[in-house]
Amino acid sequence: MALWTFFGLRQGSATTRWPAPDGDDGQADVLGMPRYHPELCGDGCGVCAEACPTGAIIVDPAGKIEVDYGRCIACQLCVEACPDGAMTASGDWAFGVRRREDLRWSENGDAPASPAPTAGYRRSLHIRHVDAGSCNGCESELQALNNPIYNLHRLGIFFTPSPRFADLLLVTGPVTNAMIEPLKAAYEAMPEPRWVMATGTCAVSGALTGGGYAAQRGLGDTLPVDVWLPGCPPNPAAIIEALLMFLDRMPQRVRGGTYGE
């Protein structure tokens, strides 16, 4: 055991300083949701919409394109399909928002005028996670939050085993039919005030995995959702940004489907 103590001490601290300005979020190489550049779109051929496996891209009757980032799984197929380069790969992954409509982009649609009301909750946050049918990708990244690099505890955010101590219910997966009741039971067991976060594109919209004979199309029909975070899966930094946004400690980046810096 002394060996491990020595080993640990010698390794030093691996924890990132991010989100402090001089810190590194560690996701520089991760491809996020593609960006749409309407000025480059030629004749609205709709090849991107055909390539999209989740229906996140829709060509409206006027030939205008609408993008629902709540359905995007960042598979990059539209980027490869577009002949004009109007869909470009990007590092836009911090997509946590308070209003579902903030994930929708359309040419005519303006960003909602006012920012969404905040929860006004600024104390240390205790999270109860429930897997409602994920592919284990979201869990893999949620587990990473407690690795020495992200070290979630330093931010005053904790996972709790009991819903009785939880402020936030963090749900992954499209909500399988078998998980509806356990999920509701976990929610009912939480004291008020309580909030819900849909994590991953499956939980936001069902994406590829929801809507079959065995699953819902995301969390929205089962529980009231306060934070929506699409991503397939959202990386650890995206999850942290969404949690800090919920706590009013970071701004919401995405409004009206447009990604701000």
Partner: peptide, 9 residues
Amino acid sequence: FKHRGMEAR
């Protein structure tokens, strides 16, 4: 509990 019917998808 996590059966999503993936094969049918």
